[in-house]
Amino acid sequence: MSHVRIEGLTKRFAGKPPAVAVDNLSLEIEPGEFIVLLGPSGCGKTTTLRCLAGLETPDEGGISLGDQTVLDVRGKVNLPPNKRRIGMVFQSYALWPHMTVRRNIGYPLRTRRVPREQARTRIEEAAELVDCAALLDRYPAQLSGGQQQRVALARGLAAQPDLVLFDEPLSNLDARLRDQVRAQLHELHARLGFTAVFVTHDQSEALALGDRLAIMKAGRIEQLDTPERVFEEPATEYVAGFIGMSNRLPLLRQGEGWALASASGADGQAGAESQTVVDELPVPRSHSEVSARLRPDDLQLCPAEEKPPAHSVGLPAEVVDAQFGGRHMDVVVTVGGSRLHAQAPLTGKPWARSLSRGQRVTAWFAKDVAIYYDADGVRTAGHTPTAAVGA
């Protein structure tokens, strides 16, 4: 285990203009902590990981692992990967096809010149940890995808590194295997307590594995907090959209109430086709324009003639598509100019089974389940997380 400190890390790639992949990023990781870098393609998460590994040379900044400085751009320190005491698990497994599982797991031990007998013990211990001890004499081509990924994990742990880096290691597995290996990885970290940085674009992986999540945008950390806080209190609209609050309703203040902004004019005022949707929302009066963010399972549907519950916002909607999802229907509706996703439970609601394209319904949500963001994408009401925003 090792404490990790990243200070002012910046990485640019040549071009006109140069592309800034990582932008003055600072982060501290406690010994034994599992940090997940989460974000879409191009946000800088993989480049950050590669800088930690020594596979990319940053333009500015510093990195220390424990009491060892592995990168100091000003001081012209940049240790190569084999000097950094790290383990790495790749998306593509990266196993040597001509080597047995035993030799693949032992490869980092050979590069560190670990004595043969000690290396043999470590290989067998690492293989036992990930349940692939019976595979040691096989070759990668004889293994399933899940088995290959477990071998890659064993290789990353065999040298007992100060830090283990994971570059989207589950993305090549099918859904069942992904869940299985994810659960094994979570259990393994709980048992061994290694320090880890895990890169993914999958929010379910991030929520399940991370002690803290760093949501990245344009090379910076948009929010850094526990999975629970990020999920329940996304600090910005960008984070809300990425963490599953995919439904967005743009609203403009209209007198004492609010109107859908889908038909707003060039001056930003609600157009003639806008409808007042609710008289009161938990938003400070200083805001004239907000966006409400909701998860699909927070958006409810009922027949058009049925009145939604009290303390809720009801909106006339039209069904675009409805798909059977087991215990619910996955439904796409349009509200004004907004396309929204809802999950209509089938238990006790037989009418939801017959939802069809073009059908008029009422979409509604409880006022307190939505999170509201101002024109700059920052939360407008309620408790603001203490996480780093824009750090």
Rank of each mutant, 00 (worst) to 15 (best):
R5K: 15
I6T: 03
E7Q: 14
L27P: 01
P31E: 14
P40H: 09
G42D: 09
L49K: 11
E56L: 07
V77H: 00
N78R: 01
S92D: 14
A94N: 11
H98F: 09
Y107S: 06
R113P: 01
V114K: 08
D131A: 15
L136Q: 09
R138L: 11
A141E: 13
S144N: 12
R155H: 06
A158T: 09
D162G: 15
L163Y: 07
V164N: 04
F166G: 02
L173Q: 10
Q180H: 15
V181D: 05
F194V: 07
V199Q: 02
T200K: 00
A208E: 01
D211K: 00
M216P: 10
D225P: 01
T226E: 04
R229A: 12
F231C: 01
T236A: 04
E237F: 02
A240P: 03
A263P: 03
A263M: 02
A266P: 15
Q269F: 10
A270H: 13
D279V: 01
E280I: 05
P284E: 13
R285T: 14
P296S: 09
D297V: 05
L301S: 06
C302Y: 08
V313L: 06
V313N: 02
Q323C: 05
G325E: 12
H328T: 03
V333R: 11
W364Y: 15
D368R: 12
A375F: 01
A375P: 01
